[in-house]
Design a binder for these strands. Structure first.
Lengths: 192, 192
DNA sequence: TGTCTAATTAGATAATAATCGAATTGCATG
DNA sequence: CATGCAATTCGATTATTATCTAATTAGACA
């Protein structure tokens, strides 16, 4: 995806009014005048914003008589949101995703016991990533963990929590800043 | 997360120069002058943009002598990127995430056989979502599937592929448009 | 056809923000 | 301390864009 599309996409979301419109549409379809009313703006302003949202494929519209109902297009531009993360890498966001569900099942069944203990640590990169993602899944986004808490959490999988912790960081599922740990946003996971 | 943070985040990515900078930094740390050189801009301009990127937590910097090396902060603002998707729902992006890794293991082990077959379909919403996500994981992002292909894919899990297909759509992992199917962007998964 | 309502276009204004040159700060080292 | 280099601050300029009013288009219906 070329840079310009990425930029336009984020520009569309980089405006308070448009984000508010999206918020409204999350609750259901609305027609222009209704949006204008709820936001205290005039119809032409809404037209303006809807055009921007439409350009990046964020909304759908359906005409009924002479009023147009706008709704969110869950089909947000292919990979717009995450494509920012592969700019410059020459890669494609969907490249590393090629682990099938069946493979996942197999890997997880293979490396974890029924109680969720990690039997042993995979050497193969693909398997390692599945295993790490699986463990990282139990951590909360946005929450900041002190080292002890991370250790305790990881102990449920394996006694050698230190290795797990280091691997989580090296593979970028987590990052550390003066001994506080935090999960990386999901979108970045495609990078590793 | 309040609207303003979301807007600022996307504003930061809604500028061509800044997206280019991110592209450069994906390939490794750089200092200001180097960035300026590569982009054909003057140092003050870079300072300006780095300030914006810093405000939303997109970069890290490390000083060496009197030159500062910038690098991407994989720690992109907690939930900025995905929080756009819960605006207006009254929910929080991290709310439904509260399935621990251990639970996941248990659920997947419980509902799938060793061969990856779905034993039976969970009634409980939380379990259902884990199971659906697991199956959706084997589909490729951005790829458009004809109905037959989706059916074939789902058959590997259960003979009643029609139900699975319907559930994947109802829970918004997939969407359909004139009988073509496509995965929803990951970020939307938090919605359901 | 005439009227109602919703959406859009056009044009103007004001606010935001990208970029630069000039001057300044800060660090390191001869 | 003086010099050199990188980064920053300041102020000015220009480009972009959000918003409005007024005028126009367009569909439905009596």
């Amino acid at each position: 995806m070329q840079l310009n599309k990425i930029v336009e996409f984020h520009k569309a979301l980089g405006d308070l009014t448009r984000v508010r419109i999206i918020g409204l549409l999350q609750q259901g379809p609305l027609h222009g005048q209704a949006i204008a009313g709820k936001l205290g703006l005039k119809p032409p302003t809404i037209t303006h914003h809807m055009a921007k949202l439409r350009e990046v494929g964020l909304i759908k519209e359906q005409r009924d008589k002479n009023t147009i109902y706008f709704s969110l297009n869950t089909n947000i531009l292919e990979n717009s949101a995450k494509s920012i993360l592969t700019v410059g890498t020459g890669g494609d966001a969907s490249m590393e995703m090629s682990v099938t569900a069946a493979e996942r099942t197999a890997i997880i069944n293979n490396f974890f016991t029924k109680d969720g203990k990690l039997k042993n640590y995979p050497a193969q990169r693909k398997k390692k990533l599945v295993v790490l993602a699986h463990m990282a899944n139990g951590l909360e986004f946005g929450k900041v963990y002190p080292e002890k808490e991370i250790n305790d959490y990881l102990k449920q999988f394996h006694d050698d929590y230190a290795t797990l912790r280091r691997e989580l960081i090296m593979c970028q599922y987590m990052y550390r800043e003066n001994n506080l740990y935090e999960l990386n946003p999901v979108e970045l996971w495609w990078l590793s």
